[in-house]
Design a protein around this nucleic acid. Structure first.
Lengths: 339, 339
DNA sequence: CTGAAAGCGCTAACAT
DNA sequence: ATGTTAGCGCTTTCAG
């Protein structure tokens, strides 16, 4: 591997100047910089990450914490993060936090403490107190996406407002018996996103003078299959039949569409279905949804972190939480209820 | 950050001994090692990655090249790689190779040359010659998954055999007019996987004494939507109507199932459909498929790479290419054709 | 604007 | 089995 000395020799300057010219920190005359750059690219020189990091304390690397790699939402956010960081010249180190407690501890106690990263982006991670403490103890800037964590700088949509918007869309179409597929009100108290969406749903109902009906709740796990099962349950059970379904994720909404079809309901004629997220398959299924632009969320988070990192001020830029955009996208899965 | 000196002081030994005790290289008496470990964990010491790398030349980090982050197959393979590497104590840095030529060059010419990784796993990347050369020029062990690249050590299923198996399944059920959704025979010559699958399909047909019929080919892009469109086309066009569809990916097969339903065909009664991959939604759609166990592929590749890395022999373990397992999973999307 | 030189925190000979 | 010490390749004062 060609090292900085060779470049220095070729350019007829000291290694210090090469370092300055290539990193852009410190003053170098234009002609000198040009010579150095020429020599570097001629020799194919690239700064060694470990040597540079050791000397400077900067890693040019950010860690990303994800709970799942193979779910659309997470991989899409990750994709946004990756492209933004690459543009800024940062590497990205991936930490897949499984539900295995021991493995998770490992990540916090060992992997993240190797001083490999300048900062961390955490995607929709539900951290327990011990983990939050360890994370903060790293002394690194951390930006969380989704599911507000009071102890971390968080970038998130207002999940409650998003759900309210989706519900109000249904209400404005004349629906009154609206079912809810999503959080289990009994067990999911710790999971912010599902719960916030459920609360937003109920909020909208109450604002319209309607009381939530217990029989119209069906919990599901945010997958297509889960949504399918829940919708079958909802539509198959005798009693009050919903004219619309609010699904707390697009994947569940798609499952619900499939279930409705299978039972012989026409969507949206017999049943309206709305989702949340902005899933790539939404268009294909003509799904009305509230898009939260996950790709953009990833990009924003990455850019916020990098600004933080590259801001020399002692005071980091304060990010006001919760102000991510969302938008109702009306497609073909919802229609007026003429009751 | 606590450094090695503090640990040495606490344990009453030299830094060299601490290094040896913690890394497991070199001899340390059991009691000394215990003291060192106690001191380290007491102080919360973790070796600095950059210092260790600079001194040893080992990074404990592998780079992963992926073309897409948000497609099921790739994120599943990635997931397998991540869990295997984490178990072995390796970090993983992610390089998302987009189709943007300039960005790709950046990855090969800068990112990968920072000496941040000990080795590379490339998932189904179609590399041009320049890129292959740059990759080999890194002097790092590289393992590719999928789409045999003659210049790289490759782990891949025999895509042609996989496709043949899927096709033979249909033939054994009595189907004769089998449509093909997948590679575009004219334009996809450079893409190994689609092409190999098409060849396997044709191979099986010929072995059964059947000639491929041009009108039963419909190219698609390996997505659900693509499969949907292709199937509509195939089933809607007057002329020879296929009794079965071979889809070169599960996602396209799922799209085809949806298209068939929409047109009023019952699957499998009126039309059999088979896919390839082992997609997580396969069970939900009762899709007959040939599973190639992508999670396991990722794990295997990671483990092969790590063995390579940790083998002191000059001669790296030779991996015979192409011998990954696959298995026909018969579910409900295929049935006998009683012609 | 540029150079000399002292580290950054660890590992790996080489001694003992 | 353990200690001593010379780097690893860069960045960053400090001088000039």
């Amino acid at each position: 591997m060609v090292s900085i000395d060779e470049v220095a020799r070729h350019a007829g300057v000291s290694t210090a100047t090469v370092s300055r010219a290539l990193s852009g920190r410190g003053n170098v005359s234009a002609p000198t910089r040009a010579r150095v750059e020429a020599a570097a690219s001629h020799l194919g020189y690239v700064v060694s990450a470990s040597a540079s990091s050791l000397a400077s304390g900067r890693m040019r690397n950010v860690g990303v914490l994800v709970p799942f790699l193979d779910r659309w939402f997470f991989s899409t956010v990750l994709s946004g993060i990756a492209s933004a960081l690459m543009r800024r010249g940062y590497d990205i180190t991936l930490y897949n936090l499984t539900s295995d407690r021991a493995e998770r501890r490992q990540v916090f106690e060992t992997f993240l403490r190797r001083q490999r990263v300048d900062g961390i982006v955490a995607i929709s991670i539900e951290l327990d107190d011990a983990e939050t403490t360890l994370l903060r103890g790293l002394g690194l800037p951390v930006i969380a996406i989704g599911g507000p964590n009071p102890h971390l700088t968080t970038l998130t949509v207002d999940d409650s407002a998003v759900a309210r918007l989706a519900t109000e869309h249904l209400l404005s179409l004349g629906h009154r018996d609206i079912a809810h597929i999503g959080a289990n009100p009994e067990f999911d108290i710790d999971f912010h996103v599902p719960t916030q969406r459920r609360l937003g749903f109920e909020h909208a109902l109450r604002d319209a003078g309607l009381a939530p009906q217990a029989s119209l709740y069906e919990p599901a796990d945010f997958t297509i299959e889960g949504g399918f099962r829940a919708a079958k349950q909802l539509l198959g059970t005798p009693g009050v039949r919903p004219t619309a379904i609010f699904a707390a994720s697009d994947e569940m909404a798609i499952g619900a569409i499939l279930a409705a079809r299978e039972l012989g309901y026409r969507v949206p004629d017999d049943l309206s279905i709305v989702g949340i997220d902005g899933h790539e398959l939404g268009e294909f299924f003509r799904l009305t949804t509230v898009d939260q632009f996950p790709l953009g969320q990833g990009e924003r988070a990455a850019e916020a972190l990098v600004s933080d990192l590259e801001t020399t001020d002692a005071t980091p830029v304060p990010h006001e939480p919760g102000q991510l955009p969302y938008e109702l996208i009306v497609r073909g899965s919802t229609a007026r209820h003429l009751g």
